[in-house]
């Protein structure tokens, strides 16, 4: 019964969106000007297809240095309606984002409950993104590759990492932290970064949506592997594997496709200087069982 209520609420919301999105008369009359506005406000274009070979550093490694972004956020006016989705795609869509991850049964239940509460996201409580959630989305990251270390400067959360690549092991008793302890090693043209000692307060993010409000918690046993591969000048993949035997049945992997944006700049991005959202969050009804 409660589940029916949940689905019905979603159904009403969806029906309203699909039926009413193009509907407001005041907006529809402005379609032509709106199209010009959309073009004027287009985000910068990203390079498609193969580009020049990736550069190398003096010590012979592929040079990962540069400004990278996974995507730009495209702005648009309200009357643009979403394209119809296929029925198959709809049925494949998970109800809870965390359901797409290989959580053990008890952990899957907890992730659903966190999602339903609406207020559990660490970001709503002024806490950092952490590794690996820090990656992806419309915030660039600046990589600075030096002999023996990789520096990553993130616009998102105004955060940074300094990753040794000189062959040193993890320290034996590093404090748990949001970014964890990372060490990198080169395997051919791929830099493999191994991260442990991650605090169990952060959420993982999930695939393309970076876990916005998705309840994707983990334990203090999380082990993250990031494989950086710059396949040409303009494109780099970051393959991320999350292994947490306390909450997952097996390790799982996803990939960010990063684009080289040398002309891009960084803006300050702080999570909670003017946070006003928490008071307006309305939890899903009912909470997951």
């Amino acid at each position: 019964m409660k589940r029916n209520y949940f689905f019905s609420a979603l159904a009403v919301a969806a029906a309203a969106f699909w039926v009413l999105s193009p509907a407001p008369a005041s907006a529809q009359s402005k379609t032509s000007s709106q199209k010009s506005a959309d073009t004027k406000y287009d985000a910068p274009a990203l390079h498609k297809g193969q580009s020049a070979p990736a550069p190398h550093t003096a010590d012979g490694h592929v040079d990962l240095s540069g400004m990278w972004i996974e995507k730009y956020a495209a702005l648009g006016a309200d009357t643009a309606a979403p394209e119809p989705q296929t029925h198959a795609a709809a049925e494949a869509a998970p109800r809870y984002p965390s359901d797409a991850l290989p959580y053990q049964p008890a952990a899957a239940k907890k992730a659903r409950q966190l999602f339903d509460s609406g207020k559990a996201d660490p970001l709503l409580h002024c806490e950092p993104y952490g590794v690996p959630r820090i990656w992806g989305g419309p915030h660039p990251a600046r990589l600075v590759q030096l002999p023996g270390e990789l520096i990553v400067l993130y616009e998102r959360d105004t955060a940074y990492r300094i990753i040794p690549t000189d062959g040193r092991p993890h320290p034996k008793d590093a404090d748990p932290s949001w970014m964890g302890n990372s060490v990198g090693t080169w395997q051919g043209d791929t830099l493999v970064v191994d991260t442990i000692d991650l605090i169990d307060k952060s959420w993982l993010g999930i695939g393309k949506n970076a876990g916005e409000g998705s309840g994707t918690f983990h334990s203090d046993s999380l082990h993250v592997t990031e494989k950086f591969r710059r396949r040409d000048r303009d494109h780099m993949t970051i393959e991320i594997t999350n292994d947490d035997p306390k909450v997952f049945t097996h390790p799982w992997t996803y990939t960010w496709n990063m684009n080289y944006v040398p002309d891009e700049q960084m803006y300050e991005d702080v999570t909670c200087s003017n946070e006003q959202d928490l008071d307006h969050v309305v939890p899903n009804q009912p909470a997951a069982k």
């Binding site: 029906a15 709809a90 916005e212 899903n284």
Partner: peptide, 24 residues
């Protein structure tokens, strides 16, 4: 049918901000 659409809408909601807008 509408619920299926809702799921799609939900699943492909863009990364909009620093948290889920659907909760607010």
């Amino acid at each position: 049918g509408a619920a299926v659409l809702a799921l799609v809408l939900f699943a492909v909601s863009p990364l909009l901000a620093h948290h889920s807008l659907g909760t607010e």
